[in-house]
């Protein structure tokens, strides 16, 4: 679905009522359940998270427990927001984070089901909030170029093929939200890992550590409990930054080459 489904030009706004089935879970130790809420008189100009804000204000005023969810920049770049909306990470709009999803995507009277990311490697902290520090440890395993501050040569000393630089940038656009993991039936982190491996492998600066990086990051990914990739492409379909599944092919190539050629 596109943000502007054929309305063309000027948008007429209206107010709608929606029913919400939201996952509630006190903490990682207790079992969770779905709770039902009514969100009334919601302007279609609101973002999805603003609808949550309005609902939470009502809940607090009524002496009830608000819904806990992760969010920060609300402009689609920080990667904090993370909700499974109507069976899809980040909801129905293509290439859009939850915070950029707007209420005009929904119909009056619709029931919206909201769940946290579901993956063993992303335990629930509370309600819709999960722990994604496994991604941090994958980066620590090799998602960097080892250069201390002050060691750099002039920025134009090493020319970089523009096509490679552009492809590297396209992979580096990953926001680390984890939607790829949430969408995958195996909870694989291959799209995330492959985006980072691609970003650095395509640049001459990343060349010296190219092999160890691929091996170590994949090893850490396995250790964290993420599953294997079966190339269904669900990750690419839900990625808000349109990270291509081609990166996974590249990771496989890098990994294989590293396994064959590495002396370490």
């Amino acid at each position: 679905m596109t943000p502007l489904g054929g309305t063309g030009g000027f948008m007429e706004h209206k107010n709608i009522n929606v029913k919400l089935k939201v996952w509630k879970q006190k903490n990682s130790q207790t079992a969770g359940r779905f709770e039902t809420y009514e969100a009334k008189n919601i302007s279609t100009e609101m973002s999805f998270l603003e609808m949550f804000d309005v609902l939470n204000e009502e809940l607090i005023s009524d002496g009830k427990e608000p819904i806990t969810f992760d969010h920060d920049c609300r402009e689609g770049i920080c990667g904090t927001c993370s909700m499974y909306i109507n069976g899809r990470p980040h909801g129905p709009w293509h290439a859009t984070t939850t915070c950029q999803l707007h209420m005009r995507a929904f119909n009056d009277g619709e029931t919206i089901v909201v769940e946290p990311w579901r993956a063993n490697a992303f335990p629930v902290i509370k309600d819709l909030m999960v722990d994604r520090t496994a991604f941090e440890r994958i980066i620590q395993a090799g998602g960097f170029i080892s250069v201390n501050t002050g060691n750099a040569v002039d920025a134009n000393a090493i020319p970089v093929d523009k096509d490679k630089a552009d492809a590297s940038f396209a992979a580096a656009a990953c926001i680390g939200c984890g939607a790829c993991v949430a969408a995958c039936k195996n909870s694989s982190a291959m799209l995330f890992v492959s985006a980072k491996v691609t970003h650095l492998a395509l640049l001459p600066q990343g060349e010296p550590e190219r092999r160890t990086r691929a091996l170590n990051m994949v090893a850490q990914m396995d250790k964290e409990g993420f599953g294997g990739c079966t190339n269904t492409g669900a990750c690419e379909a839900v990625c808000p930054k349109e990270i291509s599944i081609d990166n996974i092919a590249r990771l496989n190539k890098e990994y294989l080459a590293a396994g064959l050629l590495s002396e370490k």
Binding site: A152, F169, G206
Partner: peptide, 11 residues
Amino acid sequence: DQCVAQGVPFA
């Protein structure tokens, strides 16, 4: 210089 060395993919 430092950012390019770290792999920041500038235009």
